[in-house]
Structures are given as C-alpha cells and as structure tokens.
Amino acid sequence: MPPDDLIVTSGLGHRYGAGTEQEVTALEGVDLRIAQGEFVAVIGPNGSGKSTLARHLNALLLPTEGRVTVNGLDTRDPDHHWSIRQTVGMVFQNPDNQIVATVVEEDVAFGPENLAVPPEEIRRRVDEALALVRMQDYARHAPHLLSGGQKQRVAIAGALAMRPACLVLDEATAMLDPRGRREVLQTVRRLNRDEGLTVVLITHFMEEAALADRVVVLDRGHLVMDGRPEEVFSEVDFLEGIGLGVPQIVGVRRLLEEAGHPIPPSVLTLEAMVDFLCP
C-alpha cells in the first residue's frame, strides 16, 4: 500500500439487520482509495449508500464484508477506533444535533477535551480552529443563536480542533440555505487548498461535487463511477439513468456545443464558464 493513501476500502460491504427478515444490503464490493490531500465528492441518489459509506470512514459503522483501513489501521479493531476518529473528523447533516455545549468555544473544545489534551493546548487549538473557519468573533456566543451556515462552521472547527488528517462532510449542506451552503463550501475548499486537509464531501448537489478534484458515484450500494469531475459529468445519459442530474452548467455547455461553440469539458462551474466566455 503506498503511504500516501489515507483511507482504503477493499471489498467493503455492509448489510443492515444481517440475518433478519429486513436485511438490507447498503454497500457491496466497494473499493476506494483516498489519498492524503485529495478533495473527493461522493454522489448518488437517495438510498445509494452514501451515508453508510461515510460512517465506515471513521468506524461509526463496521464492515460486514471486506475491510476499511485509515492510516493503515483496520477499523474492525476496537483499539484503533479513537485514533481513527481523531484522524477522520466528521460533520453531519443537522447543524443542531451535533453541537454539544452552550458556548461556541466550549463546543469546539469538546473533541480535544475527550482526547485529554492539556488545557493550554486546547485553548490554542480552539482559537486556531475558530480562526480557520472565520468564526473567532463568535467564540463566546450561544450556538442556538447562530445561522445554519455558522453552526456548520462551528461543527467543522470542532472537528479541526482534533487535528484530523481528513474531514468527512455527510450531506453537511443539505439543510442550509444557499448562503450557508456557500459559506461551508468555501471553508472546506480553502482548508483543502491551504491546509492540505483531505476532504470527503458527501452531497446530492451536483454543483458542489463539481468543485472536487474527484467524483465518486454510488448507485444501489455499488461504486459505479470514479473519476475527475469533467469525466464523470460528461456521462450525462448514464447519470440521468440512475436518477442523478448534472450541474446546470453542463447542460448550458451542451446547448452551446450544439449551437457550434465548443467549450472544454473542464468548465463545470458558473465561475469557470464566465472566465472562459469573457477572458
């Protein structure tokens, strides 16, 4: 295994309620390698196993088949769980249900407190994490008074304070308004680019997936596509066949091409289109 592979899943399968009548196969034979510093988006229709996959990446769920390693540590070994969860931080969908404390900075401190980090070091990490998500002015605020996007940034800071190598966002933008979504996406993109943080973005917004370096498509528990966004989003018919769309810009690009104006396939966002058309 090359040392730069942070997370490796091999033949990963997960069945809920194994051995009962309601047995459901959520994942089957998923082979995925995520390298240090990558920005990977995972897309798929509802029920395709995206969240199940996310929860395998930090040992919240354990494989019923195959295996998952994080930094070479097998998630099936309970002795590794805390080290794995420290390495892979996670942000969940509902901003309200992942904030524990009644003051922002105390919530950010929750992870390092659990890791028994000394108080002076916790203070340093909290200030640093809040600065990274640009929430330092809200350190003494009550979380329930923040906007959705701000709450998710606090949740990201809470994960960052554990000094993870990877951040998994499990549909973390699904409950936010467009502005909150933009705040969160800009934050994770910056963390990926400037801090070298590995990001796994689980989403059902195609525009968000277009921002990643790599897009992984899941369908009914199988990994059906894995490639650069321009490769994945050029398979419009395939994606529509499994109930996914493509970013709106891809449709615009197609219309322009049909009208005789070729556009390079790397143009996947509105900004890129504007830059291309008006250089």
Partner: peptide
C-alpha cells in the same frame, strides 16, 4: 444523532 456526533468526536 447527538450520540453519534459525540462518538465521532471521541467522547
């Protein structure tokens, strides 16, 4: 959900 989130943060 909170219990899961707390576990994810090594509680």
């Amino acid at each position: 959900e909170l219990a899961t989130a707390m576990e994810a943060r090594c509680y």
